[in-house]
């Protein structure tokens, strides 16, 4: 009875994880395939990595995406901290409902609508005030900031509301001004949430195809846009090679993070 139960739970997990990881593994395996036909194995080769590293279009798109992602992540942590602070600490104020709606709406809004509406506004603004003159990195960053702020706010707000308010009150009681309390007490305490929010915004930005496609102009293509146009034409071993590189980077980053967390946990236990 009990053995049957744990067996069935184990098989569910095995199936679920296979479902999640077989596609990724197949990408990796075929990135080393000699043949251009992704599904026919024709021997081991690393030539697609060589071609990928000489593909200027992909490289410059990747560079642009990284710049946007870093700008976006940093900016949305700032905006998200402010918004999280408002939601978690300022209690009721007039306009709170409007504020909450605006903050959370991007979470449920289809990407195509966000992208379309931002583009139409940029076009209208350009007609009225001549800005933005050219759509590209600036407009993509603004668009990404707008929707990733919502995610970052949720992360930071939940950490702020779990935090013990009395330590902030203690600092105020000891004579620190509110802004000082925020930077000296609150920020260090919520630092893990800030890091998590930064990484989340970074990934969201790197991952976004739809919104960037709307708001970018000619000549400014992000990595997902280049990948998308290549993928539309069919499977391409270079994309497999790119996928393998991304998976490797993410895995290494997570292993390092896991190692650091494990060590901190150990230190805490020893202390």
């Amino acid at each position: 009875m009990r053995r049957w139960r744990s067996f069935s739970l184990f098989s569910v997990l095995a199936f679920g994880y296979a479902f999640l990881y077989v596609p990724i593994l197949s990408l990796i395996v075929y990135s080393f395939n000699e043949s251009r036909l992704v599904t026919v194995w024709a021997g081991f080769s690393t030539k697609w990595y060589g071609e990928l590293l000489q593909n200027d279009q992909i490289l410059s798109a990747a560079w642009l995406s990284l710049k946007i992602a870093v700008l976006n992540a940093s900016g949305s942590v700032v905006l998200g901290s402010l918004a999280g602070l408002v939601l978690a600490r300022f209690g009721r104020f007039r306009g709170r409902t409007a504020f909450t709606t605006l903050i959370t709406a991007p979470l449920v809004m289809p990407e195509v609508i966000i992208g379309l509406s931002l583009l139409l506004m940029f076009v209208t603004l350009q007609n009225f005030i001549g800005w933005p003159g050219e759509r590209g990195m600036t407009t993509i960053t603004i668009a990404h900031l707008t929707f990733s702020t919502a995610y970052v706010t949720v992360v930071i707000q939940s950490r702020l509301s779990q935090m013990d308010v009395s330590i902030e009150e203690a600092a105020l009681d000891l004579g620190a001004k509110p802004a000082k309390v925020f930077f000296v007490i609150t920020v260090p305490v919520i630092a893990p949430a800030l890091v998590a929010g930064w990484l989340l915004a970074f990934t969201l930005s790197l991952d976004d195809l739809v919104i960037a496609s709307f708001v970018s102009g000619p000549g400014a293509s992000t990595l997902p846009m280049v990948v998308y146009s290549s993928v539309r034409l069919g499977v391409s071993p270079q994309i497999n090679a790119l996928a393998t590189i991304i998976v490797c980077i993410v895995t290494v980053a997570i292993l390092i993070a896991g190692f650091i967390m494990h060590r901190q946990e150990k230190q805490r236990r020893n202390a």
Partner: peptide, 17 residues
């Protein structure tokens, strides 16, 4: 973990499958 890798590329993987 899969969430941190590219969404587009994960969808692309299913084309090959």
């Amino acid at each position: 973990l899969p969430f941190w890798t590219s969404f587009l590329i994960r969808v692309y993987a299913w084309i090959g499958i």
